[in-house]
Design a protein around this nucleic acid. Structure first.
Length: 244
DNA sequence: AGCGCAGACACTGGCAAGAT
DNA sequence: ATCTTGCCAGTGTCTGCGCT
């Protein structure tokens, strides 16, 4: 067991915001900086709507407490007209990523509340980032995943595992909403990134292809030509010519 | 309507060889 | 040394159906 009050005080000292810690059954374990309980308030769905209306002031992150023992931290400066943050946990997580926390809660009810809250925050934040088009949560999360990991090996299998949905369903959903297949979108993203490197660096095509996530330069050239109607080298030469 | 699954097939991506 | 092209095994996508 660990000292909940000690955790609350440490976080309070760090961010100077009042803190509520809830357990996995959504019971208030401790409040620091408050004189009364937020237990009932947090269970009220209106809180989600409050967060929705003040989303721009809301952020979330995973705070590591001990090895594999984490809290979900939701900070807001306007929610219910107070500066405050929530700590929900503890829970175990395999990797530090707010978009895919693995939360082995015992209570299905608390699980749903947290998922709903998390999904809403992530979805709304990312939809804002990707324009006014309203993509589904899965597509939004995959777009964010591409943006963060385009330079790494990305497989649909592992992405779908993280998202918790069927691979076939994800592919059709992605195509329906974006007009691109997942791999096409990813490749186009990588090609666009590589154009910046072709323009602004002297890196070889091999280095650039590895830099943007292609595993080999030959396939990079093929994909580049598909989207640009010219080889990477032709693109670079054209840019250099235009700059003279 | 939203989601999951199986199977067919189109496409990707690694590799090797050739071209510059 | 660097880049392009062709081949083909493995992977991704699509379709159709069923379940909730």
């Amino acid at each position: 067991m660990f000292d909940v009050e000690c955790v609350a005080k440490n976080f309070f000292d760090c961010c100077n915001l009042p803190i509520c810690i809830f357990d996995y059954d959504f019971e208030l374990l401790h409040s620091y900086g408050y004189n009364y309980s937020y237990e009932d308030m947090f269970k009220n769905l209106n809180l989600i709507n409050d967060m929705k209306n003040n989303l721009i002031n809301c952020s979330s992150c995973i705070l590591n407490f001990k090895k594999n023992l984490n809290f979900l931290c939701i900070k807001s400066s306007k929610t219910i007209n107070l500066n405050m943050s929530f700590l929900i946990g503890p829970f175990k997580t395999g990797f530090v990523d707010t978009s895919s926390p693995f939360i082995p809660f015992k209570s299905p009810t608390s699980m749903k509340y947290i998922e709903k809250l998390l999904m809403f925050i992530i979805s709304e934040n990312l939809n804002e980032k990707y324009g006014h088009v309203k993509y589904s949560l899965y597509v939004v999360k995959s777009l964010d995943y591409i943006e963060k990991n385009y330079s790494e090996n990305i497989s649909i299998d592992s992405l779908c595992k993280d998202l918790g949905i069927n691979k076939s369903y994800f592919c059709s959903l992605f195509k329906k909403e974006t007009g691109f297949t997942f791999v096409n979108y990813l490749n186009k993203y990588r090609v666009d990134k590589s154009k910046q490197l072709l323009e602004n660096s002297n890196l070889s095509l091999m280095d650039i292809s590895l830099e943007v996530g292609f595993n080999n330069q030959s396939y990079y050239s093929t994909v580049f030509k598909k989207f640009s109607n010219k080889s990477p080298l032709e693109f670079r030469e054209e840019v250099l010519t235009n700059h003279i």
